[in-house]
Design a protein around this nucleic acid. Structure first.
Length: 413
RNA sequence: GCGUCGAUGGUGGAGUGGUCUAUCACAACAGACUGUAAAUCUGUCGCCUUCGGGCUUCGUUGGUUCGAAUCCAACUCGACGCA
């Protein structure tokens, strides 16, 4: 089966829709949450566990797999999906996020989603101090980006063409154009300059992909998504979406930086400009609340490291909000992580998991990761189901009210 | 009984006259985490505080000194050696 997107039902009064993405390795019922397996492994989980918790696809990373084990070795396996034993649909990110995480964000304590307070504080800070140029692992120019390896410090050149070549070797069903993920701290002038360059890179990505044809690793045709940027500036977001929307991509990624309380708004600007019949992936988002506003704003797929990362650090999602299983209150708690949610972890007590965490046992990461991924995967699956049933807004209200314990869940900093 | 060595905050273990509430690690307590630089990072960790500071600690008691966790004495406890 080749790549195809079908919309089955729309969410009245919004840009939301439920549909199906067909890929050469299977279908994705959307909206869907895609677990992240950066280095061709969803950290601490086997692919059976990932499959069993309900995941439909996995997203890996170009920069990291390029560094190790290397694109040729992955291609020799027939692509990263085959290498890791995953037989469903796959995505790869282009390395565009590392332009940010190893560049503007490196050592700065900035994430792509910033609260307005953090934004204000950081901007004030940069005005006060005599800005000493920081050591980063990234150098950007018109042609591409020099990356310093986080493994051994060696330098590597990524261009849009290289990213496409590597991603053809990795063999994902859906992959992304090489972009620059910008910082939420970047001023308007920089964001403007960056989207113009990202658009030129998008065109080059598209040409290179056309030139390369099917993936030599898998023999299958891959779908290329352009990546919209523009920070939190409406005109730039719209311009980026319009420009890329006019190019012949198979779908679109929405990337870059956001303001925490207003992700939905920024995504709506973008969706209003993008072609309606192509799938939209919101890159690196998110939190439970983000799925609701994302879907209403026209997002079809999400990926995010949060469920697995916070799991490794002891935090678990529950219908009553996030809890930290490290906390003293759980050492004798005989309930499962979330008494209302049934999954593989349900038979274990919070007390046991607190013990595993405190004694640094690997199984803690595994169990909480299973739970958290199941939580978000099924949350987005539930959203899909309620869109199909026409009961979305009731579901949204009841979920958010409980999870955030606030009626005014829209105002979250 | 004699001799030698040792006793430091929840634990281990630095410190051997002033800059010592006392390095560091661990444990504990809490927080952060949004296309993974992350099984990571940050803060607290004697008591009180109007956050300026105040008070009390290094086995016990006494002493030397302007000043003691640090020097001296006795005692208590422990380890080892000799009887």
């Amino acid at each position: 089966m080749e790549f195809k997107f079908e919309i089955e039902k729309r969410l009245d009064g919004t840009l939301g829709r439920a549909g199906t993405i067909h890929t050469p390795h299977g279908d994705i019922q959307t909206p869907a949450f895609i677990p992240v397996g950066t280095k061709a492994t969803v950290k601490s989980l086997t692919v059976e566990q990932v499959k069993d918790l309900g995941a439909q696809a996995v997203l890996a990373n170009t920069y990291h797999l390029y560094l190790e084990p290397g694109e040729d070795r992955v291609a020799k396996h027939g692509g990263f999906a085959k290498m890791m034993g995953w037989n469903g649909p796959t995505f790869t990110d282009s390395g565009g996020f590392q332009v940010f995480s190893l560049g503007a964000a490196y050592g700065e304590g900035v994430s792509k989603v910033a609260t307005t307070e953090v934004l204000a504080a950081k901007i004030a800070e940069s005005r006060d101090g005599e800005k000493v140029p920081r050591e980063t692992k990234v150098k950007i120019d018109e042609e591409g980006v020099d990356f310093q390896s986080v493994i051994d410090g060696s330098w590597h050149r990524f261009t849009p063409e290289r990213s496409m070549q590597i991603q053809h070797s990795l063999g994902a069903d859906i992959f992304f154009a090489f972009d620059e993920c910008t910082s939420p701290l970047a001023p308007y002038e920089y964001q403007k300059k960056a989207i113009d360059r990202t658009h030129r890179w998008a065109k080059r990505s598209l040409s290179e992909h056309t030139l390369l044809g099917v993936s030599h690793a898998t023999g299958a045709q891959q779908a290329l998504f352009g990546v919209v940027q523009g920070g939190s500036f409406e005109d730039l977001r719209r311009e980026s979406a319009r420009t890329l929307g006019a190019m012949d991509f198979d779908g679109y990624g929405i990337g870059g930086s956001f303001t925490k309380s207003d992700i939905g708004t920024a995504v709506r600007w973008v969706s209003e400009e993008l072609p309606e019949d192509k799938p939209r992936h919101l890159l690196g988002i998110g939190e439970p609340i983000d799925f609701f506003y994302g879907v209403e704003s026209g997002v079809d797929t999400f990926d995010c490291v949060t469920p697995t990362r916070v799991a490794r650090n002891g935090a678990a999602y529950t219908v009553d909000g996030r809890i930290n299983l490290h906390n003293a209150q759980y050492v004798d708690d005989m309930l499962p992580i979330d008494p209302e949610i049934k999954n593989y972890t349900s038979s274990f007590t919070r007390s046991y998991i607190a013990h595993l965490l405190r004694s640094n046992e690997m199984l803690a990461a595994t169990l909480i990761s299973i739970h958290n991924l199941h939580f978000v995967v099924s949350l987005v699956a539930n959203i899909r189901q309620h869109v199909l049933n026409g009961t979305y807004f009731d579901y949204k209200r009841s979920f958010l009210k409980r999870y955030y314990k606030s009626v005014d869940y829209r105002i979250l900093s």
